[in-house]
Design a protein around this nucleic acid. Sequence first.
DNA 1: GTCTATAAGTAGATAGAC
DNA 2: GTCTATCTACTTATAGAC
Lengths: 214, 214
Amino acid sequence: MAKGQSTRERILSESLRLFNEEGEPEQSAVDVANALGMSPGNLYYHFKGKDAIIRALFDGFEEEMRVILRGSRGRITSIEDNWVYIYIILEEIYDFRFFYRGLSALLDRYPDLAVRFRALLAEMRDAIDDSLDGLEQAEALDIHKRLRPVVVDQIISTLTFWLSRDAVSANSLESSSLIDKTVFEAIALVVPYMGDASVETLNTLIDRYEAAKT
Amino acid sequence: MAKGQSTRERILSESLRLFNEEGEPEQSAVDVANALGMSPGNLYYHFKGKDAIIRALFDGFEEEMRVILRGSRGRITSIEDNWVYIYIILEEIYDFRFFYRGLSALLDRYPDLAVRFRALLAEMRDAIDDSLDGLEQAEALDIHKRLRPVVVDQIISTLTFWLSRDAVSANSLESSSLIDKTVFEAIALVVPYMGDASVETLNTLIDRYEAAKT
DNA sequence: GTCTATAAGTAGATAGAC
DNA sequence: GTCTATCTACTTATAGAC
């Protein structure tokens, strides 16, 4: 543990680590205290319980994600830009993976977080719409009016459930491979709408993907 | 409750109802017994606990899903066929929705069910491959070799996480509307690969979707 | 097959000493 | 700020009577 870290911060970072690595449902507030060599009473002095810890962790995630989403507006015009942009989003989600893995259950347990999470998803939707607009101009992307919202839903769904998909699949990947694969899949959703540029774009995408693997 | 139903059957159907409607994590074995006006001791006589109940429920789901998946092989050639086929799959999943809503957590808790669930997904993958083959011949569907497995993944993902997506979204739909919407989205994933037939297919799809709504 | 009673274990939470 | 001690509430599980 880095010196200068307050007890509060130590509780938060150890909780995040335990939830991500051992599974949030399996860890009680007392487990967190034990992992830190701290008494439960002390932990309860800093946080009213596991609920308060999870809310505090969400605060941090929410803020960082907002910075990412807002920082990109109007700046995404190429496939390369998109690759990097989505990669950054997925890395942020990966750091908060316990939340995404048990999403439905957690949103049921914390209705207040559900409201905030939905607001975050709405921001993400706007950001994706924005970058699709950018691509439509720069790369002659052409999505049928009726299909546009469906495609956006599919992209959001991919960015939301990629970790659950991996958990369900038999052979779980290492994190960076998984992120690369997911970026590829997200962009692949719009490739067929690129008309004559599709094949070329697909090749660019495959090159980028293969490069990331090495 | 229908007469002639054994206590075992009553426990299973009441458990399924409670898990689906009230959430599986919130219901203990004692809650199920109480809901049936039965003593916990009696429930424990029939099932060793909640784990045994969930395994028995999975047995039923697994068997029904296999029948559906195997019954369709080689019989799907049109968009209409696909619509009906996917609709039936989603209805079956809907009956077992508590499981799909807490998928990651449940597969973590029951590694034996994880193995069986993955086998079921593999069967589903084969069935989807099969029906895409059918469409490729009948409707000149043309998916780039590299994208084919990605598209199949996206379809499977849609059919696996549609209930979680709905739970996360702000405005949850009524079950039949949600199923219609999901069928539309699943088929929409292959529409752009239909070349000249795309627009026509999309219109057929929209008509079918609008008809389902009324 | 079904009931009552109860044991055993654990998470969540707080009071009060240091 | 941190610790020890403790209490409540609840789930799981079983023994033994009917």
